[in-house]
Simulated assay, not measured.
Amino acid sequence: MIKVSILYPYREGGRFDIDYYCGTHMPLAARLFGASLKGWSVDAGINGGPPGSPPPFVAAGHFLFDTVEAFYEVFKPASDTLLADIPNYTDGGNGTILISEVKVAV
């Protein structure tokens, strides 16, 4: 199984609408990805470690797929729609993508 993570860096004064992201954008992506998507989640950054420090990322969206190929197969036709939605929840661009292999899940 692989996980596709989109990491949105924290920026002082930056705008990120976590409610829109969780309630509209991620469900849109899930609908577009269909049965290939095995699950999704969102992390909202709250701290960077030391007390009172900002988080390195304001949010991270995660999608689970069986293979990288399964992700690309559904992402390519959905990409224009998803990229066009980004300004609705952030003024910080499209984030950094990390594709990783899930080694342990509990």
Rank of each mutant, 00 (worst) to 15 (best):
F16S: 07
V4A: 06
F75I: 10
F65K: 10
T67M: 03
F63A: 07
A30N: 00
Y72W: 11
I99D: 09
L28N: 13
V106D: 11
P56Y: 14
V4E: 02
A35V: 07
K3A: 10
G95F: 13
P9V: 07
F75K: 12
F71Y: 14
K3P: 00
A84G: 04
S53H: 10
G49A: 06
I97W: 14
N47V: 12
A59M: 15
H62E: 14
F16T: 04
H25S: 05
D85Q: 01
T24W: 08
M26R: 04
P27A: 03
I86H: 01
G34P: 03
V104R: 15
D43C: 07
L83Y: 05
S36R: 14
G48W: 08
N88R: 05
K76P: 07
C22L: 09
I2S: 08
L82M: 11
T24L: 11
D17P: 04
F33G: 01
I18G: 08
P54L: 07
F75A: 09
A84H: 05
S41Q: 06
I2F: 08
V68P: 01
G61T: 09
G95H: 01
T96E: 13
G95Q: 11
A30R: 09
E73Q: 12
F33L: 11
V42M: 06
T67N: 11
F71H: 10
F57Q: 14
F57D: 15
L83H: 10
A105G: 01
N88H: 01
S41C: 05
F16Y: 15
G92F: 03
S41A: 10
G13A: 02
G13N: 06
A60T: 12
G45E: 08
T90W: 03
K103L: 15
D19A: 05
Y10A: 14
V58L: 10
I86N: 01
A70L: 05
P55S: 14
P77Q: 15
E73D: 13
G48D: 12
M1L: 05
F65T: 08
Y72P: 02
E12V: 02
L7I: 08
G45K: 09
F65A: 01
S41R: 08
M1G: 04
G52P: 05
G14P: 00
P55Q: 01
G93S: 09
A59Y: 11
E101T: 07
D91S: 02
L83Q: 09
I86P: 03
G23T: 10
G14L: 14
N88F: 03
E101L: 10
I6K: 13
A35H: 12
P56S: 10
G45C: 11
T90R: 07
V104Q: 06
P27L: 00
G34K: 07
I86W: 12
A44D: 08
F33K: 13
A60P: 04
K3Q: 07
S79F: 06
Y72K: 15
G52D: 02
V68T: 14
